[in-house]
Design a binder for these strands. Structure first.
Length: 436
DNA sequence: TCTGGGGTCCTTTTGCCC
DNA sequence: TCTGGGGCAAAAGGACCC
């Protein structure tokens, strides 16, 4: 979903020449909101906002009727409601969006196997081969738009260009429900008037740095010496942005990149200062993370914990294990060890997260285990839980500590974590008012 | 205005080894 | 024994994307 608004509106100029254009970027228009409208026609024509109904959610997607009031994605729900009080708020149904996404990706793959999904609602396609068969990149783009609307009942916008990032800018430029071809020899004319913030990789902070240098458009950036950009933004980012400003982008469409990390995080409905509640959440998140790793047949070697305080400052702590793991219990013990080592006492936390990094294939790991590595038994136990979850649904089998609220603090943590003497452990007493 | 949850990538700092 | 520095990996933080 593109977050940038398109002040210019759909293109009005003459149709571009698609010679040399082999990359398509397809971006669904207000995807989540459109799926809701398709499923609930009575919402059509009304301002609809998809987002968490809770006090701390953000807007996931909004119909164009709601956007007229200034509602944009990633905006806090509280603010969106204030801007557009008459909007109909819909709780997200991720399963529905995944289904719709699978259908759309299927359409793309009927054109070419070279499809690189960026998220549920957008993808790059390399149509160099298909173009000969189907009459050019523009024709393919038009066919995709018609087919997606026909089969899924939602509209999309298509950018056609010779490189990925120009195709992406083109699709953003013709939203909603449009198609724009940027001819290979028209890239610089297309790029240079755009604001620097349009470039992929230029967010709020970078834009501010560039603004202080007096650089407002992509053309300004292109005219700036490489050494100046490298000094201001770092060698990698400086060189990258300079290349993009001249339309140079060597990246090719890559169908599937292996995942590098898997994680889970959760913002508490209200800030939490009870270490016992935090540990229970770490257990839940560790189990969820490890289960997803097992489902993906991946193991990870580094466990990282993320803590966001009430004032939104965020820290991370990580530990690399001697062996990769997909065992929830091991992830949890590492995570809770990292958390305890912080000695946070009664700090007010807004969010905690657990992530497994340095992922490799579980097949390679199991070969190592066969060579005499002993196993704690948790692996078998959790494999059994996975099976039960498949039969009876996720959550059918859970650690005892997650069944009854604060049932038994000892169930969460057997003995003090390594390296932390029990006398130094943060307070574990349940607080009055915490138990229902 | 008050900020979700899933990720990737880059930079800087730190600790270790030689 | 002290000091310096290069190379490397891990850790930490931060910007960015959808």
């Amino acid at each position: 979903m593109s977050r940038r608004n398109n002040p210019a509106g759909p293109p009005t100029g003459p149709a571009g020449d698609d010679t040399g254009c082999t990359v398509l970027h397809v971006d669904m228009d207000a995807f989540y909101a459109m799926v809701e409208l398709r499923d609930r026609p009575e919402l059509r024509g009304k301002p609809v906002i998809v987002g968490g109904g809770g006090g701390r959610g953000v807007v996931l997607s909004a119909t164009y009727e709601a956007r007229k009031f200034g509602v944009t994605s990633a905006m806090p729900m509280v603010r969106a409601r204030r801007l557009c009080p008459q909007a109909i708020i819909v709780n997200p149904q991720h399963g529905r969006y995944s289904e719709a996404s699978a259908g759309v990706m299927e359409v793309f793959r009927s054109v070419t196997p070279l499809v690189e999904p960026l998220s549920l609602d957008e993808a790059f396609l390399d149509v160099a081969g298909a173009a000969r068969r189907m009459g050019g990149a523009r024709a393919i783009g038009e066919w995709i738009r018609a087919t997606v609307e026909d089969e899924q009942g939602i509209t999309c916008s298509v950018g056609v260009a010779s490189t990925k990032f120009v195709a992406k800018l083109a699709s953003a430029h013709c939203k909603p429900n449009g198609l724009l071809v940027v001819p290979a020899d028209g890239v610089v004319q297309f790029l240079h008037p755009l604001p620097v913030g349009a470039l992929w990789g230029v967010g709020e902070k970078t834009e501010e740095v560039l603004r202080k240098l007096g650089l407002h458009t992509v053309g300004d950036l292109a005219a700036t010496p490489l050494s100046t950009l490298k000094r201001a933004l770092g060698p990698a980012s400086g060189a990258h942005l300079s290349a993009l400003a001249w339309g140079r982008d060597e990246r090719v469409v890559t169908p599937s990149e292996p995942e590098k990390s898997i994680g889970a995080e959760e913002t508490f409905p209200v800030d939490v200062d009870d270490p016992q509640v935090v540990r229970r959440e770490l257990l839940r998140l560790s189990e969820r993370t490890a289960a997803r790793a097992r489902a993906a047949r991946q193991v990870g070697r580094t466990v990282s914990v993320k803590i966001r305080f009430a004032d939104f400052t965020t820290i991370t702590r990580s530990k690399t294990l001697p062996e990769s793991t997909d065992v929830g219990r091991q992830v949890y013990e590492t995570a809770v060890g990292l958390y305890d080592a912080l000695g946070l006492e009664r700090a007010r936390l807004r969010l905690v997260g657990v992530r497994l990094e340095g992922l490799t294939s579980a097949a390679a790991q199991s070969r190592q285990l066969l060579l005499g590595e002993k196993d704690s038994g948790w692996r078998e136990a959790e494999a059994a839980v996975d099976k039960a979850a498949l039969r009876f649904g996720a959550g059918a089998v859970r650690p005892a500590a997650l069944v009854a609220p604060l049932a038994d603090p000892a169930a969460l943590q057997k003995g003090p974590p390594k390296g932390v003497p029990s006398g130094n452990r943060p307070d574990q007493r349940p607080r009055s008012g915490d138990s229902p």
